[in-house]
Amino acid sequence: MLSQESLQQIDREIAKYPPGKQQSAIISALRIAQQEKGWLPKEVIEFVAGYIGIPPIAAWEVASFYGMYDLAHIGRHKITVCTNLPCALSGGVHAAEYLKKKLGIDFNETTPDGMFTLKEGECMGACGDAPVLLHNNHRMCSFMTAEKIDQMLADLEKQ
């Protein structure tokens, strides 16, 4: 179900916790699985739960509780824009609107070519860098002016 590399990464996470407390690694393990699969189909969640040794519903609780897991198919690039108050005072909403217009999609939608999915995020702890957005959960992009957004999209399309 998951690659050897992902399993090794999960093993490394499990090793961080005391014996018998491997449930602690479920958040990382699901993140690693999502990184490999693009999103989290239920079979993958069940597999990860079995690998960690917890009931599948316990893994599902976690997967559905934390906002950065994707429980449905998304595009190759997920762009999450912060529109919370501090960001909104400094262009966050405009960045989101710009992205919507540019990609022709609304929040929680994916471009027809399956390249981009747009999400509205909550505070990322980087309000000083507004507008900020997150690419595929792992890369934070700061001071996203229209020009920088154009550049980013162009770079991602090339990938």
Partner: peptide
């Protein structure tokens, strides 16, 4: 065994 859970938030 946990069979029921409270999903989402």
């Amino acid at each position: 065994e946990m069979e029921l859970g409270q999903a989402f938030r």
